[in-house]
Structures are given as structure tokens and as C-alpha cells.
Design a protein around this nucleic acid. Structure first.
Lengths: 241, 241
DNA sequence: TAGTGGTCTAGACCACAGT
DNA sequence: CTGTGGTCTAGACCACTAA
């Protein structure tokens, strides 16, 4: 995935915001100034700013300029498609991953059928991983990776980052996902794995796709309710149902 | 809020997708064809398509075209900033709203202080509303509307749509919000209002702002866990933390 | 080779803030 | 009035897909 000029500008400004070079509450240089600074046209600068705008890093005010918004610690990465490994790194959580299961299968495991009833029989790889933070269970991730496009999944990859493997080794482009968050009753086995008191867990069910719309993966993440937190930034839609 | 040419094109294509004129799994007309169809430049058409892309209605594939994605019933409106009233209308839920409290206050109610500790003392209007679907309690919404910009809130507005009042009567532009979803223990009073068995509720805490970054509103929504569902569409970020 | 989307440009005009 | 962001355009070149 090659980065466009607009992407580079967006990342550079993001970095400057993060490092306090552009401070929350103050204005960015004007679009014309950025045009000069980065040696590009105004439309290109505007495409870069549009990215920051939709992420909630800045607010554009007509006639005045672009204000840097103050962002909560978590407001950045949690919504969107971000792997546990990436979150771990960027938040410095020092988490641990235990791989409980990893095997190839010729059809969709029963566990998934309730949440993804429309999936036809399909080969794939099933991975079950427990995530611990400070030695306490936090999330149980159950993944089903479709074959194709994923033919093999080395144990080492499961212990580290599957996304990293898919993007950097297999050179596939993860593009989008649908997610559903609900609260579910869980059985005693799961309750034991997560070490929770109640028989409830927060379930994040997601279905992710490559950029050519090929289905890539189904995931069921069971979270300890007392530790679960989902942070989101949203803009008011112009397009309404 | 005036609509740009790109917005109109985006809405028109969205409508055509909804009405099956452009079918899920098939390709939209090419950008050049849309250029002719709408009598605009290609960049303008592309800005329209970009909106549909980020909403998850289409996927653009280089060298081939833009595919219409099939969207789940709920995938459209639920994330983002959408009022209960709007959701109710678009999903045909036939919901009912009971206003439990409505009064002006000179400082932030205690209830909010835990979730929004950084808010200074501030005048505003407190509204507490119970939402029922099929005569069963679904959500308890507690809102605090800052004064200014909101000076008055007629009872009739609280029973109907506060967002509609803010946007259409007061002509204010609601722009963005931060949200946080957690699972919380609730007291027996709240438990009674929601008519739930467990002493747990899903809490959606949000802070919304006008387009000039003026804080507008704090909301705490307590959901019956067994009925809670949050659906999201996400794209993989180019900009990473 | 022809058609698709991806990117970038230089210029134009507009609406709005602040002076 | 000047400077800001908001919109639109026409044209250019590129990378990719499919025949």
C-alpha cells in the first residue's frame, strides 16, 4: 500500500499534534500556509486535513481555521479496525497472549453459527486466544480465518500478531469490518477461562474483509464486563437513512 | 446547513441503493459515467463516492469499479450520532418516550460527575427520559444540556426530538461527539425503572459539541443489557497511533 | 489496448470571521 | 477589506484489470 502525498501530510500533522508541536485548542497553520510548507496544492492539503477531521483530531471552522481538539487518551485507536497487538503497543499495556487452540477445520465451528448464520460451509483455521493484562484474563478471542485467502497460520504468528502476518508477510490488504457489540450469557467453561463472577460477557462479533471484498475473518471476542470499555468518536451524518 | 453538489449526488446514489436500483454485489456506473449523469466534474463525483465508501455502502476496487456492499439491516445508522427519535423513525420501531424529569439546574448533577469529572460548574437543563418499545423499558436517557447555548427546553420537545429542536428551531449545528460504552452496576432505583433482573446496565456516555466546538450536551444512556446492541462499520486506518 | 479508479494540480468563485 | 475554509472545475498522469 503506497502512501499518497495527502497521507504523508496527514501523518506528519498527526505526529506534530501528538508531540505537542500543534497544541490542543490552538489553530493549525492555514491551508495556504500548509500548501507552502508541504509544497503541494491546496486540494491535497485539504484531503490530508479531511482525514484528521474524520478521526476527530481537528475541527474546521469556516473563516477562522482548523482547531486542534483535545483528545482523550483512548479516543484515537479503539474504534476502527485495530488489532489487540497494535493496541497493546500503542497504549503500553504490556499484555500477554496465550494460544489455547489452533487448528484447521473444514466447516464453521458451532460457536460462530449463532452470530453468523448466513455463512456457508467453508474451510478455514480456528484460533482461540486468551489475552491477559497484569496476569488477569481480559479477553477471549475466537477467530476463524477463511481458507483461502489464509492457508497456513504458524503458531508463532498466533502468539504475536495475525494482522501483521496478513499485511506484511502475505501482502493482503485488510480493508473493512462490520462489528456488533452485545451482552451475552456464557457457559461455565467460558466463565472459568475469563475468571469472571457473573455469567455475562460483552461480546464483540466482527466480520472483516479484504479490499476486494473477499471475506477474511470472523471474530468473537468475549470481554470481562467489568473491564470492557469501547471508545468512539462520531460525526453527525449528512446522509441519513 | 447548505448541501453541496457532492452531498446531493451522494444522497441520490444512496437512495438508489436503498431502492434496489443499484443492487448489492453489482457495480455502480463508472465515475466517468456518473460525471455525465450528474453534470459535474470527476472530483466532485469522487467526493460523493468517498462519503458512501466511508459509510460502508460501497467498496471501490481499482481497475474494476465501485461495488455496492450488502448491508445488514442495522449497519447504517446506529454508530455515528443519531438520536433515538431518528432511529425510531428509520427502523419503524414504534417507540414511546416518557419524560420523568425536566428542570433547569445551576450545576452539573452528581450522576454525571463520575463519568465527566473534568466538567466545571455550569448551568444547564436536566432531562430524564425513559424509552419504551412494545411497552417494555429499553433505555433510560439522562441528558444535561448546557446553558448557553440551550436556554429553554419545552416539555413538548423533550417528549419528541431534542435534536430536531436544536437543529431546526434553534438553527444550531450539531457536529461531533465522543462516546464511551461500558457495563456498570446500577442501584435498585434504576433497576426498577428499567425493569431488569441483574443489577447491571450497559452505559453509553457521550459528550456532544457544536461545529464551533462549543460543548452542547452530556448524555448517560442506561440500556437493558439483554436488549442492547451496537452495530458499527469500520475501515482500517491509514493513520496509526 | 481501453476502461477503471487514485492522485495531484492551478485556478476560480463563494461564505464567513475579524479588522 | 483581508484571510480563512468550502466548493467546483478541467486536465493531466498513474496503476491496475480485463479482454
Amino acid at each position: 500500500m503506497v502512501k499518497s502525498k495527502a497521507d504523508i501530510i496527514a501523518q506528519d500533522i498527526t505526529a506534530k499534534i501528538k508531540h505537542g508541536q500543534f497544541k490542543a485548542g490552538s489553530f493549525l497553520p492555514s491551508e495556504n500556509q500548509l500548501t507552502v510548507l508541504y509544497g503541494s496544492s491546496r486540494e491535497t492539503v485539504r484531503k490530508a486535513l479531511e482525514q484528521l477531521h474524520s478521526l476527530g483530531l481537528i475541527q474546521k471552522i469556516r473563516g477562522k481555521g482548523s482547531v486542534v481538539l483535545k483528545l482523550g487518551k483512548y479516543s484515537f485507536p479503539i474504534s476502527g479496525i485495530t488489532s489487540f497487538t497494535e493496541l497493546n503497543k500503542s497504549l503500553g499495556m504490556n499484555a500477554e497472549t496465550k494460544v489455547l487452540k489452533l487448528r484447521k477445520m473444514n466447516s464453521l465451528p458451532k460457536l460462530f453459527k449463532a452470530k453468523f448464520p448466513k455463512q456457508s460451509k467453508q474451510k478455514g483455521i480456528y484460533v482461540e486466544r486468551l489475552r491477559l493484562i497484569a496476569n488477569e484474563p481480559e479477553v477471549l478471542d475466537c477467530d476463524f480465518l477463511f481458507t483461502p485467502p489464509i492457508d497456513e497460520l504458524p503458531m508463532k504468528v498466533a502468539r504475536n500478531s495475525i494482522y501483521d502476518y496478513i499485511e506484511n508477510d502475505l501482502k493482503l490488504e485488510i480493508s473493512y469490518a462490520t462489528k456488533e457489540i452485545t451482552v451475552e450469557k456464557i457457559d461455565s467453561e467460558l466463565q472459568k477461562k475469563l475468571e469472571v463472577k457473573d455469567n455475562l460477557a460483552v461480546l464483540v462479533a466482527s466480520h472483516s474483509f479484504l479490499s476486494d471484498t473477499t471475506p477474511l475473518q470472523l471474530t468473537l471476542s468475549f470481554h470481562d464486563p467489568s473491564k470492557f470499555k469501547f471508545v468512539d468518536f462520531a460525526r453527525r451524518q449528512k446522509i441519513k437513512p
